[in-house]
Design a protein around this nucleic acid. Structure first.
Length: 132
RNA sequence: CCAGACGGCUGGACGGUCGCUGUCGUGCGUGCACGAUGGAGGAAAGUCCGGGCUCCACGGAAGAACGGUGCCGGCUAACGGCCGGCGGGGGCGACCCCAGGGACAGUGCCACAGAAAACAAACCGCCCGCACGGCGUGACGGCCCCCGGUUUCGACCAUGGGCCGCCAUGUUGCGGGCAAGGGCGAAACGGUGCGGCAAGAGCGCACCGCGCUGCCGGCAACGGCGGCGGCAGGGUAAACCCCACCGGGAGCAAGACCGAAUAGGGACGGCAGAUCGCCGGCCCCGCCCUUGGCGGGAUCGGCAUCGGGGGCGCUUUCGCCCCGUCGUCCGGGUUGGUCGCGCGAGGCACGCAGCGAUGCGUGUCCCAGAGGAAUGACCGUCCCGCGGCGCGCAGGCGUCGCGGACAGAACCCGGCUUACAGGCCGUCUGGCCCC
RNA sequence: GGUCCGGUGGCAGAGUGGUGAUGCAGCGGACUGCAAAUCCGCGAAUGUGGGUUCGAUUCCCGCCCGGACCU
């Protein structure tokens, strides 16, 4: 996970982001973002509740969210608009595991701008070639 | 070919791009890069059993309580598992199902119905006797009265009625015999048939069941044959219980090691207020004609007294408790890190023994180790199934769409149970057709 | 990782082998000028699959769901 920064692990960290951050619900996921005073790389955490399904469904949901975050954050870094100084929590939803992957990438990109974690200057993103 | 029974296997394939993680190697910027290589299951699940391992407890142990298991033999490290038998039940059959020890150790329960529900009895009923009984009906005999007819006047035929006797039968009561039949029920002192009897009854007999017993087969559960006994007396133990056997407790968050800053605990030592108080040790000086004593000074310790700050007891008087700094050592311990943690009751192949579970031998292989928790994300081609459309007599071919299960290791192993799209293999049973 | 409880009408909640209470809610009726309260009546349930038993909400076993506790 080196390319996507540090992980959020402790329960207290998740609660702090939920309490003080900005929330952006999307069809494929819910993003919570909270600014930090420093400019270190973004820290990521993932939440998938038992409501989503059994262990297989929950793990698959987390993997797709991780992959989507990895691809989008790397694209922004290559573009010179790296997402820094922020804690992000991605929450899986019922449909996350079945949502078409390009749509999931788009959900996450839009959520980043909605929460202000990424500059909202750009209208649209060039599509990420799958498996690039 | 159809229907079915049982056992076993499998549960997508190939490729591309981008990622995650263990190990090994190289490099240096010591956590990164590059290369090589490994990376979920038959149930990884439920946590229903059995073990290994670790810690705790304990003199070996035994017992109580509690819990579990329960036909016999075998397998196994062990088991509540498996295999092979036995007994019972179901199916035409292959085959399937069964907690299947003990009801003369004791206790409890058996609703409703029924006379009666467990210890003996008798509601209806059957039979005998008595009431030489009463009543009803019928037959017979005797006597009397009466309608009518015939008449040889003796009588005869015939109708209705009364009384008496007697028999049969029904009914009522009492006494006795019986338990076959009826009826109730899930269950009622064994079942069927024949004989027998006043009526009946294992009362007698045959067969079946049951109990006891002998012999034979079997390691055993059990089975077979024979003899004896006329039946020895309900069910329920997945009701309490009795008997036999098994079980010490906790669990990898077990447990072991390392351990920063800061804070805090304990022990020891040094230094820390005052007093012309008392006692003691040591050092110095002076005197006393000396292995000793006296006086003075300095220092240390103990005791006593007086004090400082804080808290509590109602404010005071008063009482109780706590309180400095430095050094060394010991112990505990938070976030965290390392180990435990991957060679094992191991996988595969072959052979041997055994009906089998399984065991033995030989060869060969090393095969996941994460920690907000890796083992993936996306795409393409193929495969399989279903559906639509087109072509074709048909087998089929082409094309499009949809779908491809249950499910994710967390110390490990042996079982059980539960979930599971589809596919494959083998053995067997019943039926139909053809040769 | 381990242990222990529970599941009964729409809701709450009794029932220890034989017929499943009761309250609230709902519906209908009575009462009232109309309501409320009150009275009368009605419907509706044993999580699921097996087993033991003559008979199971109850006893036994397997699943499903919910909850609690310990480490």
């Amino acid at each position: 996970m080196a390319s996507s920064g540090i992980k959020l692990k402790r329960r207290a960290e998740f609660l702090r982001v939920a309490a003080k951050g900005t929330k952006a619900p999307m069809p494929g996921l819910v993003l919570q973002a909270m600014r930090r005073p420093d400019e270190a790389p973004a820290r990521l955490g993932f939440t998938v509740t038992k409501k989503v399904g059994n262990a297989v469904a929950r793990n698959r949901t987390k993997r797709r969210l991780r992959e989507a975050a990895r691809l989008v954050l790397r694209r922004e870094a290559l573009r010179g608009t790296a997402v820094t100084g922020v804690d992000l929590v991605l929450i899986g939803r019922d449909g996350t595991a079945r949502r078409p992957f390009p749509a999931l990438l788009d959900d996450f990109g839009r959520a980043l701008r909605r929460t202000g974690a990424l500059g909202a200057s750009r209208r649209s993103d060039p599509p990420i070639e799958p498996g690039e």
